[in-house]
Amino acid sequence: MSAHTAEVSTQNPSWSGGTSPYNVSYGKLMMWFFLVSDAFSFSGLLIAYGFQRFNHAAEWAVPDKVFKSFPFLDGEYPMAYVGLMTFILIMSSVTMVLAVEAGHRNDKKDVIKWMFLTIIGGFTFLGSQAYEWYHFIHGTAEGGIVEGTRYFGAMLEHNEYGHKLFGSFFFFITGFHGFHVFSGVVINIIIFVNVLAGTYERRGHYEMVEKVGLYWHFVDLVWVFVFTFFYLL
């Protein structure tokens, strides 16, 4: 009898039942699958952006000329501020991975410290994005001429920087990403409160921190792509 079971399990141990073939908990697996589906949404948006940009290449806005303001400084610093935003988000990803690492060691004090810094990073990023939107919407004093009409700033229907779809895509894609960051911060705060309350200490493991960590890294990952396709290219 035991020889028979041994034979079955050597054929394909992970799919023979009794254990998870993915070797992770249900919650973590579902988080992964949710992230895959969310990545598809963002891919669809970015591919649509690329498609329209390719079609209206001549009239498209030049990112260097749009995103060049820096808080508290006069003059033009193309890409400096979005570069800083990218740094902030990567930094908060690092603090998140440090929180997960502390969770593996059941180190409540370190989890609290790094989760707190992650939340601060998330709020900083959201503030930066609000600044970006403010400057994009208000535009420049001299405005810009698109298809014979002078426009000031950016709206959904038209903008001073170039083709009207540029503004629509900017608001939609960075808005959708910003909303992800916002929900990520909210979820982080909920988990942070739970850590403070000692919920995971009593449970014996900090897997919830790992799960929100996955989501938070995903938000960072999406920004890496938005940054390249929207600002750099």
Binding site: Y22, N23, F33, S93, V97, H217, V224
Partner: peptide, 19 residues
């Protein structure tokens, strides 16, 4: 980011392929 920060590299092959 996916391999190291999200620890996908440490997961089993089934999960890596599914993702």
């Amino acid at each position: 980011i996916v391999a190291y920060y999200m620890h996908l590299k440490d997961e089993v092959k089934n999960l890596i392929l599914s993702v």
